[in-house]
Simulated scan of single mutants.
Amino acid sequence: MIHYIVNNVRPRQGYGLTEAGIISMMYPKLYKPGSAGKLTPTIEMKIVNPDTKTMLGVNQPGEICVRGATVMKGYLNDEESSKKDIDSDRFLHTGDLGYITEDGYLYIVDRIKEVIKYKGFQVAPAQLEERLLRHPGVKEAAVVGKPDERAGELPTAFISKQENMTVTAQELIDLIAQHFHADKQLHGGVIFVEEIPKTVTGKIARKMLKELVKQY
């Protein structure tokens, strides 16, 4: 997230999909760091529990679902995928985890498929990664779930260090402990690597890391 101003220009965040166009945007004089802004006039939104599909209230993270004039009617020649992603009320299920505040601001938490399930709790890797990246000794961070028979998955951090900087695993574990509830701790520990593997598009190669973490 970018919070600074360069040459009197303040970057603002929005949210949209190929299947839905622009969903929300940060309007002038309504800037809130970390938010994706407020819904555009043509969009309706509901937040639902990813598992039960029941509607959630304000400040409750769940799957973002949208409908409106700019939202697609379905996938061309793919009725099965259309039925999977668009419910009976014509809401498109985006696969993104987020929440709406009482004053109508949208916050994006993570992709649902990336969420780690620890003892029934949902842990968003992006939230932990953002905090880890604030440490001066951390160059790159990626958090994935390590399979565990009792807990389901243990949040585990892969860390690439900044050159000529010193940082220990316990230091980072303590950092997360200071800012998050017990269910969002790095219960799987910290693994230091030379660099975080990326996909061809530059995104974290989480599938590769999920296989790698099984070796530790």
Rank of each mutant, 00 (worst) to 15 (best):
G152P: 03
V167P: 13
P136S: 04
E171N: 12
D148C: 12
T166L: 09
E140Y: 14
V167T: 11
E140R: 13
R134V: 12
H135W: 00
G152D: 05
H135P: 00
E171F: 11
A151M: 14
Q170E: 05
H179C: 10
R134C: 15
P136R: 06
I176Q: 03
D148S: 15
Q170A: 11
K161W: 07
L154E: 02
I159M: 09
H179L: 14
R150Y: 15
G137H: 11
R150N: 07
I159G: 03
V138D: 15
K161L: 06
E130G: 03
T156V: 12
L172V: 09
I173C: 14
M165H: 09
L133V: 10
P136I: 13
P136H: 08
R134S: 15
I159L: 14
I173L: 15
I159K: 08
A142R: 06
I159W: 02
A177P: 08
A177H: 08
G145Q: 01
G152F: 14
V143K: 00
K146R: 05
E153L: 13
P136F: 15
L132K: 01
E130K: 05
E171W: 10
H179V: 15
K146Q: 08
A177M: 13
G137F: 03
K139E: 03
H179P: 11
F158L: 01
H181V: 05
A151P: 10
A151N: 06
V167D: 07
L132S: 00
H135V: 02
E163I: 07
H181K: 13
M165Y: 11
V138I: 12
D148Q: 06
M165N: 07
D174K: 12
A177F: 13
R131E: 10
G145A: 05
R134E: 09
E163H: 04
D174T: 04
P155G: 14
P155L: 11
E163A: 03
A169T: 11
K161T: 12
Q170V: 10
L133Q: 11
L175Y: 07
T166A: 05
V143R: 00
S160F: 04
T156R: 12
T156D: 07
T166M: 06
F180D: 01
K139Q: 06
I173F: 13
H135T: 03
A151Y: 10
T156A: 06
H181C: 04
K161F: 15
L175G: 08
K161R: 12
K146S: 02
I159S: 02
E153Y: 08
I173S: 06
V144F: 03
A169C: 07
S160E: 07
P147A: 11
P147D: 01
I173Y: 08
R131M: 13
E149C: 13
G145K: 02
R134M: 09
K161A: 04
S160R: 15
E153F: 14
A157T: 04
A142L: 08
H179G: 06
A142S: 03
E171K: 15
P136M: 13
A169H: 11
D148K: 15
F158W: 09
K139N: 14
E171Q: 13
L175M: 09
E163L: 04
P155K: 12
G145M: 01
A151F: 03
L133I: 05
Q178M: 09
D148M: 10
I159Q: 02
L133F: 12
T168M: 14
K161C: 06
N164Y: 09
D174P: 03
K139C: 10
I176W: 08
